[in-house]
Design a protein around this nucleic acid. Structure first.
Lengths: 192, 192
DNA sequence: CTAGTTATTGACTATTCAGTCAAATACAAT
DNA sequence: ATTGTATTTGACTGAATAGTCAATAACTAG
């Protein structure tokens, strides 16, 4: 009855997730989008709306994938120190796969877009908060002594700030030996 | 002998520092620059070169002012816990003055420009490193027990990461009560 | 007062940008 | 095979972009 789509929506969003992650919102043009997705300009507008809507969907996908995975990883780690090791381990692994240093799309959105787009600001805060909550649960469940001696909520919030700072520093091309210090210190921080 | 300049170079750079800090590089046009500085387009090019050169000077000025001040503040605080209290105290004070949440120009540059401009990347890393060195000196000199029990270099690096994360989160408009947790936890971390 | 030097001015270019649209197309149900 | 419907296409628009330049203005040393 209808002409079928030539493209896979999820595949397109994954490609745009990567592109926006690397280059930000402003430095990706709709011409770039066409090249990256192999879609015609008009088809993109027909399928996704405008550039901002496309960015929003890509960012939400990133959140589900990366922050969702981080929360799960923390939840299923045997205790907070190993949760932190696992979390930073995946970040380091990604830096190896593609010699570039990408940092974190959510953090980039916080800097570039959140101040001028309340919807983006909300998404970013929600994802940060989810990470903090995961740290907090982990502490309360597996490190009650640490949680008690240090104010668990404050500590969880700082662990999120540390993770964000790590990703910003990674994006500047800072040496891995320096980056490693951050995760080591974070581990030490939650080790009774 | 020569026609004198109508403008004060330092004043112009301070204005542009604020503008780039708030809006980033891509979202400030040369028309904006003209409006912000009350300078004619051509005069800007004559005085500063191109947009990138202007951004570089503004960023370097920010580094001297803010990171320079932070390093001095840490150096002249009586110990690391109070250094951290003082550092975050100035950040909170600024957030009060202008109800907006600016975060940190250096962090914004790390995200938006550093990945595509090696000179900016170097400036950003240098400023981050200066902060880390200041934390390290403070620890070694005023908290030798903490420094010894925890690996001071790792800890100093994490304190910088925490500060960066704090500024990114501030830029998303996160509640001050949540932000306060970060600095409280950082203080707790260096309290023997 | 004049000459020499640099700053200012605003109009100009050529490019890039996000977004639009009418026409053509591909399919599947009948 | 025909028809109905959503998708694709590429040319189009108008606005915004960074950067240029020749003419003009302002000052001061002599």
């Amino acid at each position: 009855m209808v002409r079928p789509r030539k493209f896979d929506r999820v595949d397109i969003l994954n490609r745009m997730k990567t592109a926006f992650w690397e280059n930000g919102f402003s430095d990706i043009s709709m011409d770039d989008v066409g090249r990256i997705t192999n879609m015609n300009r008009g088809s993109v507008y027909n399928a996704f709306g405008d550039k901002r809507a496309l960015y929003l969907e890509a960012l939400e996908l990133y959140g589900e994938q990366h922050y969702g995975a981080a929360v799960e990883l923390i939840k299923h780690s045997k205790d907070t120190p190993s949760a932190i090791r696992n979390l930073y381990g995946t970040a380091f692994k990604r830096m190896k796969d593609d010699q570039t240093h990408w940092g974190c799309f959510m953090c980039n959105a916080a800097v570039e877009v959140a101040p001028v787009d309340t919807e983006v600001a909300i998404i970013v805060r929600e994802n940060f908060d989810a990470l903090t909550k995961a740290f907090l649960s982990s502490l309360l469940e597996t490190r009650p002594k640490v949680a008690d001696s240090k104010n668990a909520k404050n500590l969880a919030q700082q662990l999120t700030a540390t993770y964000i700072g790590f990703n910003i520093m990674a994006r500047t091309g800072m040496a891995k030996t320096s980056l490693k210090r951050i995760s080591d210190s974070a581990v030490e921080m939650v080790t009774a």
